[in-house]
């Protein structure tokens, strides 16, 4: 496998999104909780997500109190924590999949485990850069609190991906979105993560509001669980993020068929993202 050693995290993200754009399709971002359903399964599931067409992987760092997450991610996090999954292990998983598949990897987790990383945030950023990670997503870290994270990540060329919500007013978007790195993550609905039957009715309008302030790619996540959801975002967003529904696909399959089930699920969504 080719490894593009020189690329910074932000450059890796740009490359992944550019590839999808050139192929005139939505980029696929797939979230999986590290250590779910068990420690040994993670690396196979990450590969399966890539085989199914994922352009970017989000490695979920489990946390005891995931207050922005619905039942699926809560349960996956509890199971992962029972096995003692640490942030350091998540970095090790990232390093492996980057080395073997040149994947674009983000770590997604709550603020506290990052803050408690042995050696502090600067050490984390340096270890994450060494692992080849592209950046992090922290759902309980609004821009008001992000300065110490940004300082540590910037110096390593890593991106902190901002989340914006339908409740974010235009004035706030105008102030914050221009500082975004990598891509902009639009939360499709007012609520926690978890598969939904239908997407929020105002997604297109919301993405339009965000688009006015950035030329970066825009990903839409939260609630996406079906090819129709993905198809409806063509021409609206540049990427979709699927998390809870991917975990649901894993847990619905018999133990020896999980990777296949995930690959098939991701590829059904990826197909819906092509024109």
């Amino acid at each position: 496998m080719t490894v593009s050693t020189a690329a910074t995290g932000t450059a890796r993200i740009a490359r992944a999104f550019a590839r999808a754009r050139d192929e005139k399709r939505l980029a696929m971002v797939v979230y999986l909780t590290v250590g779910y359903p068990d420690r040994a399964a993670t690396s196979g599931l990450l590969r399966a997500a890539l085989d199914g067409g994922a352009d970017v992987l989000e490695l979920g760092v489990p946390f005891s109190d995931p207050l922005a997450d619905g039942a699926t991610v809560q349960r996956a996090s509890e199971i992962a924590l029972r096995q003692g999954i640490s942030l350091a292990e998540c970095l090790a998983e990232a390093a492996t999949i980057v080395r073997d598949r040149d994947a674009t990897v983000l770590l997604m987790g709550y603020a506290n485990p990052f803050l408690q990383y042995r050696g502090g945030l600067n050490r984390f950023a340096s270890d994450a850069a060494h692992a080849g990670a592209a950046g992090i997503i922290v759902p309980d870290l609004p821009s008001e609190e992000s300065a110490e994270f940004d300082a540590a990540l910037d110096s390593q060329g890593l991106a902190r991906i901002d989340l914006y919500a339908p409740t974010t007013p235009d004035e706030r978007l105008a102030r914050l979105v221009p500082h975004a790195r990598g891509f902009v993550y639009c939360v499709s609905l007012t609520g926690v993560t978890g598969a939904r039957r239908a997407l929020g009715a105002d997604v297109a309008e919301f993405v339009g509001r965000v688009r006015r302030h950035t030329s970066l790619p825009i990903a839409v996540g939260f609630g996406i669980s079906a090819p129709e959801h993905v198809a409806s975002l063509r021409g609206v967003a540049d990427a979709v993020v699927v998390g809870s529904a991917a975990l649901d696909a894993v847990s619905a399959a018999p133990a020896d068929r999980r990777a296949d089930a995930l690959r098939a699920f991701v590829s059904s969504l990826a197909a819906a993202g092509r024109a």
């Binding site: 759902p139 870290l141 609004p142 919500a165 974010t168």
Partner: peptide, 12 residues
Amino acid sequence: GGQYLPETLMPA
């Protein structure tokens, strides 16, 4: 102190 919250709640 501070406001370590999901973006959805920041306007609230």
